[in-house]
């Protein structure tokens, strides 16, 4: 491995740790109280959900409107696993996340094979229907607790664990999209016929990208279950899928850092908008319309925020203002 690469990874790691320590410090000082920590945790789950949706929508280019369905599958699978096994906390958490992700990923494959033959709006409608089917199924299946939901799920997720999960998810996504697999997935969004004509098995990669997206949504769902400790099928409605979709569109399709930014923005905006509950969705809509007019590609478009890029720019700035005197 090149020295440069290691250096870049080190910078990113340092940035991630610095943000973590900063939040811990703010918590210690009482600036970030329990209530705000709660918001942060939900924001983290939203980031995982929206970033995973961005893989299917922003990179693979497929309109997916049932992401809450995969989240629900992951949440219920993880919860049922935890409720039916007696294990220490950490194995339960990790096992629950793995099972939640795996079951959701499996559903991703099962839904993806027939559904991904469709394109655009039609795929949107099918995935929307899928999300609703999952919700109705969870209401009526014998082992999901019906409308009363699942209760007494062990509360295993705190801020620290969630932060690690978010970092791992984002890192995974970055490494994944910047590989031959990511290139193949991206090329399908750009031009499916051309992708096929240069030897990309497009059907395989469509299902694959969709399944990875569903897998991560399942992981997000399992984290949700282990934080909420109560699951109610009514949470996983079409509107929740739309919220994830809005985050992706606002952040920029094909920009993972954009998704993080948009998730932070919307989650905190949401909190303030609760005081005007009735107008919340109106303001949402206005926000989106404004963005479509002035910034149709989303906040970051397809660009990514890069700590290394920022450092380089600072370096050149410093270099310009303090030119070295030797010639």
């Amino acid at each position: 491995m090149h020295k440069k690469v290691i250096q870049k990874y080190a910078v990113n790691l340092a940035g991630v740790v610095a943000v973590f320590l900063l939040i811990l410090l703010l918590m210690g000082m009482g600036v970030v109280n329990n209530y705000m920590t709660g918001i942060l945790i939900f924001t983290g789950i939203n980031i995982i959900m929206a970033a995973s949706l961005n893989l299917a929508t922003g990179y693979l280019g497929q309109l997916v409107l049932g992401h809450a369905g995969f989240m629900a599958i992951g949440a219920y699978a993880a919860a049922l696993f935890a409720l039916n096994t007696e294990m220490p906390d950490l194995p339960t958490l990790v096992g629950g996340m793995a099972i939640g992700g795996a079951v959701a990923g499996l559903f991703g494959i099962l839904i993806g094979i027939p559904a991904l033959r469709l394109r655009g709006d039609y795929l949107g409608i099918v995935t929307l229907g899928f999300g609703e089917i999952i919700r109705i199924a969870l209401l009526n299946l014998p082992f999901t607790g019906g409308a009363a939901g699942l209760r007494r799920i062990p509360k295993l997720v705190n801020f620290n664990i969630l932060y690690v999960a978010v970092v791992l998810t984002i890192t995974f996504l970055f490494l994944f999209v910047r590989s031959r697999h990511g290139r193949a997935i991206h090329s399908i969004k750009e031009d499916e016929i051309a992708a096929e004509s240069v030897g990309i098995p497009t059907t395989f990669y469509k299902v694959y990208g969709f399944a990875v997206s569903a897998f991560l949504a399942g992981v997000g769902g399992s984290l949700f279950a282990f934080y909420q400790s109560i699951l109610d099928p009514r949470k996983f409605t079409f509107m929740l899928s739309v919220e994830f979709f809005i985050i992706v569109v606002l952040g920029g399709m094909g920009s993972i850092t954009g998704t993080i930014l948009a998730a932070l923005l919307l989650s905190f905006a949401n909190e303030f908008l609760y005081s005007v509950e009735n107008f919340r969705l109106v303001i949402y809509a206005l926000l989106l319309i404004t963005m479509m007019i002035f910034k149709p590609d989303g906040l970051l478009g397809t660009r990514e925020f890069s700590l290394n890029g920022l450092l380089d720019r600072v370096k050149t700035l410093v270099g310009k203002s303090f030119p070295k005197s030797k010639r």
């Binding site: 031959r180 290139r183 193949a184 991206h186 090329s187 750009e190 031009d191 051309a194 992708a195 240069v198």
Partner: peptide, 21 residues
Amino acid sequence: FQNIRLFKNLTVLDNIKTAFH
């Protein structure tokens, strides 16, 4: 193709790299 089909939003280099898949 008759009407050029490139991966328009990818760089020239990535267009080629995709074909090495």
